[in-house]
């Protein structure tokens, strides 16, 4: 079970995030989660949206380099130690995390993270076995 994330290549200069978010806003794209990774020269904006096909089309037409990647969305109780438990499962199963970011929960008492790992299927199976909740796009945008 996975969620499609859109990654966008952006130069590290003023106005770029403004331009891309404006484009998505005007295109009616709902962003559920986001993270920005940056280096001195460039950044990669990663977003989870309600309609990834439309989003990629919008970005490509506007001349951005964008790519859809599968990531794992995990839900767990919002309490100390819960995130560590998730990480422990990945570590025990020899799964490497490329990057991850958290996003806002609409359900009280729950926390969510997006995980980009070297093996999504293995991560999903291992986490489900330990009773963690995995979400799909429908779960993320179902009750908006």
């Amino acid at each position: 079970m996975s969620v499609k994330q859109i990654s966008i290549f952006m130069e590290n200069r003023p106005g770029r995030i403004s331009a891309v978010t404006k484009l998505l806003g005007e295109g009616g794209i709902d962003i559920r989660a986001m993270a920005l990774a940056d280096t001195t020269d460039f950044g990669i904006l990663r977003i989870i949206v309600d309609d990834e096909e439309k989003c990629v089309k919008l970005l490509s037409e506007a001349g951005y380099s964008a790519r859809a990647t599968a990531v794992v969305a995990v839900g767990f109780d919002d309490k100390p130690g819960a995130l560590a438990a998730v990480m422990q499962v990945l570590y025990e199963n020899n799964i490497s995390v490329e990057y991850m970011y958290s996003f806002i929960s609409k359900e009280a008492g729950k926390a969510y993270i997006m995980l980009r790992v070297d093996d999504n299927d293995a991560a999903a199976a291992a986490l489900e076995e330990k009773g963690f909740t995995l979400l799909n796009s429908g779960d993320l945008f179902g009750n908006k």
């Binding site: 994330q5 990654s7 290549f9 990774a37 280096t39 460039f42 990669i44 990663r46 490509s60 380099s65 964008a66 790519r67 990647t69 490329e98 990057y99 980009r116």
Partner: peptide, 15 residues
């Protein structure tokens, strides 16, 4: 200039 072929979602692959 970046192309779709050269791009992927991780910093290390772009570097």
């Amino acid at each position: 200039e970046m192309t779709d072929e050269m791009f992927s979602d991780t910093i290390k692959s772009v570097e």
